[in-house]
Amino acid sequence: MARKLSMRQAINEAMHQEMERDESVIVMGEDIMGGLGVDWLEGDAWGGTQGTTKGLGPRFGRDRVIDTPISESAFIGAAIGASTTGMRAIVELMYVDFLGVCFDQIFNQAAKFRYMFGGKAECPVVVRTQIGGGFSAAAQHSQCLYPIFTHIPGLKCVIPSNAYDAKGLLIEAIRDNSPVIFFEHKKLYDAETEVPEESYTLPFGEAGILREGGDVTIVALARMAHMAMEAAETLAAEGIECEVIDPRTTSPMDEDTILESVENTGRLVVVDESYPRCSMGADISSMVAEKAFDSLKAPIRKVAPPHTPVPFSPPLEAAYLPDAARIADAVRAVARHGS
């Protein structure tokens, strides 16, 4: 039976169920349990900085729930090495911003093994990582960066927008035999949806259609999907019906669902919290321009932050991040175009 769970709980439940089901699944990273080295502590002090790994250590033991020193290259590389030799490691890169101190292991090692070794290697590693702004966490703890990973052949990129999707996609990620990067938006951890108690998987490469509408297609990921839905409600009252598509995975990317929608609406707004250059917004826009040009009735609009680092001060950050009002403005502009 389904019940309400937050995305944090859904992610935690997915790991519990997969560790129960398959003893080759291990979880590792910084502060996964927390408090390691403090002799008098029992149980998990933290269970991850966001509590997503809470309870795993006491349940499955330190052999499979592994706290590491702060040395991302070494422990993410170790997760990759372990996954190439028979384990299924779920490794936490606490914030995606820290990719700068470990990226070689992800993009030159994990992503390439299978190809450069002629199809003989499997590396079923999952890198879980936090993305997104909205907490005044400033320039080194607020980025999205998923376009960088999406750029790399050999990596799969998963970006859930809600608890139901997060559980199904994480279980799918853990069972996948290729490296998967799983991006969790910090602002969505407390968002609740109905989530089945049972285990289930959600296939990669199938976008979610969050709302049907015939006037304008909005494509949005993670937290921006919620902003897009908010904008769509406002716009519906004005008589503009939006179709809101959440790609859910950017590699593989469900091009068909986006193209079919644009063929129907003829108008596209892409919302992306990542930087505007070489972004998912740019990627999806170019894909639609290339493959559905004749369906377009208006220029494609992108809603994205400016090409700047993420600022700290709350009003600055609010000015930086896309929101429902900016999305609604972009939709109105494409809806009006040509009329």
């Binding site: 291990i26 290259s73 590389g77 997760a79 990759i80 090495g81 030799t85 384990m87």
Partner: peptide
Amino acid sequence: PLACGAAMT
């Protein structure tokens, strides 16, 4: 790092 992982296994 990868050798550490193989050793972990």
